[in-house]
Lab assay of single mutants.
Amino acid sequence: MFYPNSPQTSPQLTQIPYGQQYAMMQRQIQQPYHPFATTEPQARLYPYHYQGPIQQEQGGFITQQSTAASPQYVQMRVTPVDQSIMSGYPNQTANGSSSSSFNYNIHPQQQQQQQQQQQQLRHHAMPVGSVPLQDDRYRKQLIVNYLAPDVTSTDLHELFSRFGELDGARIIYDKQTNMSKGYGFVYFCHAEDAKEAVERMSGYEFHGKWLKVGYSTNPLNIVPSNSSPYVHAGSRGAAG
């Protein structure tokens, strides 16, 4: 039997160049792979992502010199942007860049009308829970959420009447099932009393439920100042 490094198959040491006398086997001759043993700084910083320098080929596509990437890492192929796409944008300079302001050559009167329309939209648009300043009635009506099913309009009136005089209180019921929808409205005579009720009743436990109280901004629920107070009856038909 002959071994790869046996004296019968191995040459004389004098015939082997210096430095390879003890590297006779194939696994010894093959050098191990060192990912950080390279002179390129990109490979030292990113050993798993770097795959060699990027070269520009004919046709405008950018390719990489090395083989496919590892399945664990996804390499994105980048193509140059066609400058003709950006030619339609206004205020574009000769080098292809555009300024931040756009001039669509709008007539001054049209621009003024658009600004007025935007101001009107901001004036009428009102986020949930906010209180408008032009109508004091919005500051007097509250919406009470997360009410228990057994709470009546009379219970709601008695709960909030300790903060001040009320114009009314009612629970909203479903017309088909005649069941409470879980929320109601309270109408105060003074805005200061309503503000105190919002601050003190939010998070209050009532009939096993934690109440959420806020201003009601729905104009359909506003009680006119010259109208008669609501009837605080315990029956659902009268309260709904």
Score class of each variant (00 low, 15 high):
E196C: 12
Q114F: 08
Q51D: 06
F61C: 15
Y50R: 15
T39Y: 06
S235E: 07
S99I: 08
Q56T: 07
P4A: 12
A169L: 01
R200H: 09
D135Y: 13
Y204W: 15
F61S: 14
Q72F: 12
Y3M: 10
F102N: 07
G203L: 03
F163L: 06
Q120W: 14
A233P: 09
S228I: 07
A238C: 04
K140C: 04
A69D: 12
S70C: 07
E158R: 12
Q42S: 11
S153M: 15
A197S: 06
A194N: 00
Q111Y: 10
T38E: 04
I62T: 15
G164F: 02
G129E: 05
F206T: 01
T38I: 07
P41L: 09
F185V: 01
E196Y: 15
D82Q: 14
L147Q: 01
Y183T: 01
M126T: 05
Q113N: 09
I143F: 01
R122F: 04
N178A: 12
Q15G: 11
Q15F: 02
K181C: 02
Q83D: 10
S6I: 06
Y183S: 01
D155P: 00
T217D: 03
Q110V: 06
I143C: 00
H232S: 08
K209L: 02
S84F: 05
S161E: 15
I106Y: 11
H123R: 12
M126N: 11
D135A: 04
S216F: 01
V131M: 11
G182D: 01
E158M: 13
D150M: 14
P219Q: 06
I106R: 13
N226G: 05
P4Y: 03
H123K: 11
Q118A: 07
V74K: 15
E199C: 14
V213P: 03
A197T: 02
P90D: 05
Y18I: 07
P47L: 01
P229C: 10
L159Y: 00
Q109Y: 12
Y230T: 03
A197R: 01
A194V: 02
D136Y: 12
Q83V: 04
Q176T: 09
Q65N: 13
I172D: 00
G234R: 09
M86H: 11
I54F: 10
P108W: 13
F206G: 01
I222M: 03
P224Q: 06
P219F: 00
Q118Y: 12
V213F: 01
V223K: 14
N105A: 05
Q65T: 12
Q8D: 08
R139I: 14
Y50N: 15
Q65R: 15
Q112N: 06
R162W: 15
E196Q: 12
M126I: 14
A23Q: 14
Q134Y: 06
A23F: 03
E199S: 13
T63H: 09
T152N: 05
K209G: 01
S235R: 07
F102D: 05
S87R: 14
S70V: 07
L13S: 12
A94M: 09
Q92G: 10
M201G: 03
M126D: 04
A43W: 02
E40P: 09
E40K: 15
V74F: 09
R137K: 03
I106N: 07
K195N: 12
Q111T: 11
P224E: 02
D193P: 14
C189M: 05
P32K: 10
T217R: 02
T39L: 07
A194L: 00
P35D: 09
N221C: 13
A239H: 09
E57T: 10
I172V: 02
I62R: 15
N5T: 07
P11M: 04
Q141N: 00
T217V: 05
G52T: 10
A197L: 00
I172Q: 00
S235H: 14
Q113Y: 11
Y46M: 14
A239T: 09
E205D: 09
P41H: 13
V81W: 09
A68V: 10
T67Q: 08
T67E: 05
S161T: 07
G182L: 04
R122A: 05
I54D: 13
G182N: 01
Y48F: 10
F102Y: 13
Q51K: 14
Q42N: 12
S97C: 12
G60W: 02
L13N: 10
F36V: 15
T38A: 12
G184S: 00
Q20F: 03
K181V: 02
Q110K: 13
G19H: 11
P229T: 08
Q119T: 11
F2S: 13
F160R: 01
Q75V: 00
L220Q: 02
R162F: 13
S84V: 06
D150W: 15
D167F: 03
S84G: 10
M76P: 13
T154K: 03
Q92N: 08
Y183G: 00
H49I: 03
R162V: 15
Q28W: 04
K175P: 03
R27L: 04
V223M: 05
Q83E: 06
G182Y: 00
E192I: 09
V128R: 11
V144L: 02
A233R: 06
V198L: 08
Q26R: 14
R200M: 04
G240Y: 12
V131I: 10
K175Q: 11
N145H: 00
A43N: 09
K195R: 15
